[in-house]
Design a protein around this nucleic acid. Sequence first.
DNA 1: TCTATAAAAGCACGATCGTTCGGTCAGAAC
DNA 2: GTTCTGACCGAACGATCGTGCTTTTATAGA
Lengths: 200, 200
Amino acid sequence: MGKGESTRTAILDEATELASLVGLGGLTIGTLAAATKLSKSGLYAHFASKEALQVEVLQHARERFTDVVMRPTVATPRGEPRVREFFDRWITWQSTAFDGGCIFVDAASEFDDQEGPVRDELVRAERDKLESLTLIVGTAVGEGHFRADVDPEQFAYELEGIVLAHHHARRLMRDGRAEERARRAFDRLIDDCRAVARSA
Amino acid sequence: MGKGESTRTAILDEATELASLVGLGGLTIGTLAAATKLSKSGLYAHFASKEALQVEVLQHARERFTDVVMRPTVATPRGEPRVREFFDRWITWQSTAFDGGCIFVDAASEFDDQEGPVRDELVRAERDKLESLTLIVGTAVGEGHFRADVDPEQFAYELEGIVLAHHHARRLMRDGRAEERARRAFDRLIDDCRAVARSA
DNA sequence: TCTATAAAAGCACGATCGTTCGGTCAGAAC
DNA sequence: GTTCTGACCGAACGATCGTGCTTTTATAGA
């Protein structure tokens, strides 16, 4: 890895951290330059524009997500264990990957109304994650761990809800029991997928 | 209502709308002045600072929430019907109250790491809503509509998750079936509260 | 060691940020 | 008719924004 590439990575690391605190939009070249001990122009030479930087920050974070969540997940036994692993790692990711909030959650509310490459990248990342999750759940159905009429997309939707509630409770409300509550919600979700039938 | 007070309200209305599109932090005095057809200084005379404006925007939105969600909810029969009413109105609120995303959701990710009066107001609003919801669920338990071992706080946590998932799916992913999914998730939640016992 | 090239700095630009201040102009109070 | 007040505006402040250009410094290959 050449000099340029290594500073580039360092910039993106720092930018990810900063963006998790002040948001992707709140990120400024000036503060990022100060944080990386570079001049504004020196830093700027690495990127075509601020918008391009924002997109690259998202891609950078996405690679990390793949490394610490996705890859270990697909390496565990298929079916329910894999679903559990995914959930575990996802929750842990949200608590440990950033000083601030998860930049995907933060950026989602920030850019959901702002058309452009940043929003596009966000949607791409989310769709990717959703597809993987749907597949993982579908496999659990195929393995017979979950009922046949379990809707993987609905499962993914509800799991996302649990994770978002966890993020909300933990970061805004600073609820010490946020993770415990998330686990209870997840257990209920899993439980309903295993049960033979639901009450009328 | 005097002249000053009415323009003040008009400013807050417009500010709420704008903030839902670009975030509370993305809101600027200049664009807000242009949107309200006032000069920057003319507008600014109504508020002590931008931060004070942000806080007032949140309070303004909170009053609207009380009007269109809370008040009609507590006017419906106690127990499960009231819980359903709350959910219905909350979901509708998120879809219709703003052009952009719900400013509480947006602001929550934006300010969860930024100490100050804006964050404080956010926490206050959230705590308020959570308390009301917990009470409403508790009543449903008291009425015998829900099982006695239902944990109202856990219920509130999971309901918030459903609403957040709905917001996420609807605004970022533009999923047309977001609301249908939310309703299914809610029905499952209610169902589990009524069931006599859960499978092992 | 010399040189070609890559990396970072220096400096400056136009724009916009939040904020302040002096002023105008209508209407109410006296 | 004068004074006072509330509502608003125009201009400007210093700071910072994103973004270029030019120059210096560091690095790597011969």
